[in-house]
Design a protein around this nucleic acid. Structure first.
Lengths: 122, 122, 122, 122
DNA sequence: GTGGTCTAGACCACG
DNA sequence: GTGGTCTAGACCACT
C-alpha cells in the first residue's frame, strides 16, 4: 500500500516531491522491502504527470539505494532498507542540530526548544 | 560592523544568501538599528558580484521590513528590530517543530532529539 | 556438473548472464565436451525465470559455437572446445590491454598494475 | 581546451559517453580546475545533440563531483579534483584485478598478462 | 545569456 | 507489459 502525492503548484520540483514521498513511505514502513512500486506509466497516469518526470524520480531513488529497477520487470523497494533508515535518521538529526545552533545564536533558550519538542509527544 | 559572505558555488541563489546573511547579522546583533548597510557598489566590488544581485537582495530586505532605504543616501538597518527578531524566533521554532514531527514519524525517539540539542549547550 | 547463477536485480540482461555463466563453466572445465546442458524447462524452473529467456541464451550459445543442439534431445557442450577456450583467452587479454592503456593515460604506473596482478598469484 | 566526442550509433547511451569523455579529460589534465565547460546549448549545437541529453550528462558529472554547476553562470570543472583522480585510479585498478582474476581462473598464466602490459610501456 | 524542470511523443531492449 | 534513452520545444529563476 502506498500513498504518493504531489503538488504541481509547489516551487519544489515535482520529481523531488516524488523522491521524498516514496522515501518517507519506505522509512515509515508503508512500503515493504521488495514491494513493487507503481509502474512509471501507471503512476504518470494516476498523477497526471509526464512519465519522464516519474522516471527521473525513480532514477534518483535508485541512486540513493531506496529502490532498485529491473528493466522489463518494474521498480521495487530495496531488499535491505536498514541503511536507508539510518541515513534518514542521521539526516534529520543533523538538520535539527543545525537549526538548534541557529536558534542558540539567535538568542533562543534551550528550554523554549525543548518545550516545542515536548509538545509533539504529549 | 557586518559580516556578509556568499558562496557562488552554492545552488541557493546569491540574492537569497545575501538576504539571509544580513538578516542573521541583524538578529545576532552584529548590525545595530539605523546602521548603514554597505553601498550596493561597494558590496558588489567586495564580493565580486553583479550589482543587480545586491540590489535585488536589498529590495527584498526592505520588503521584509529589515532595512529601510533613503533615496540618495543608502540603506539602513530598521530602527525597530524587535519585530524582526520575534519573527525570526518564531520561524526557527516552527522549523524545529516541523522537523521534530518528521523525526517522530520516522521512528526517532524524543530522547535522541533532546540529546542532540543538549550537546550544543554543553 | 554445472553451476549457473543469475542475479535478476542486475542491470545486465538475464540472458547475457546465462550465456556468460555457461561460457565460463565450459572454459573453466566445470562442464565437459558433449555433456548435456539442463533442459530449458528444468533450468527455467530452478532459476524461476521465463523459459523464453533460457531459450534465447541457448540460441546465443549455439551461435557462438559453445554448444550444439539436437532437436528433440536437448543442448550439449561442443565436442571441441579448444577454439572456445582460445577465443575466451584472447578476449580477456585484449580487455586487459585496453584497460591498461586507460590506466597509462590516467597516470597509473606500470608497477602499480603489476603489483595488483601479482597479488592474485600470491 | 577540451575535446568531447560522441558516437550516436554506439549502443552505449550518449549521455554516458559524454560523462566518460569529460571525466577522462579532467583526469588526464586536459581540463583544469574551475575551467568552464561549454554551455549546455553550445555543446548541444556543436555535437548536434539534444540539450536535454547534455543536461543529463552534466547532472551526472555534478553528482560524481567532477563538475559544479552554477545556475545562471555555467558549469565548471571542480576546484578540487584530487578525489576524482584517486577514485578513477582505484576504479581502473579494481577492474584490472577483476579481469586478471577471470584470466587466472581461465587458465591464463601470469606471464602472459604481464607481457601484455609490458608491451604498452615499450 | 545560463542551468534546471517539465511536457509530449517516440523508439529500444528485455521478459 | 516494463524501464531507459532520446528528441523537440517550452517555461522558469538567476546573473
Amino acid at each position: 500500500m502506498y500513498r504518493i502525492i504531489v503538488d504541481v503548484k509547489s516551487r519544489k520540483p515535482i520529481y523531488e516531491q516524488l523522491v521524498e514521498s516514496v522515501k518517507t513511505s519506505v522509512v515509515k514502513g508503508f512500503m515493504k522491502p521488495d514491494e513493487p512500486l507503481p509502474s512509471v506509466r501507471q503512476l504518470a497516469g494516476e498523477l497526471a504527470i509526464n512519465p519522464n518526470t516519474i522516471q527521473k524520480a525513480y532514477a534518483e531513488l535508485e541512486r540513493q539505494g531506496i529502490v532498485y529497477s529491473v528493466p522489463g520487470k518494474g521498480s521495487f523497494v530495496s531488499s535491505d532498507i536498514k541503511e536507508v533508515k539510518d541515513a534518514h535518521k542521521n539526516e534529520i538529526l543533523s538538520q535539527i542540530e543545525e537549526l538548534a545552533e541557529h536558534a542558540r545564536e539567535g538568542g533562543i533558550s534551550k528550554e523554549e526548544i525543548i518545550d516545542t519538542i515536548n509538545k509533539l509527544w504529549r
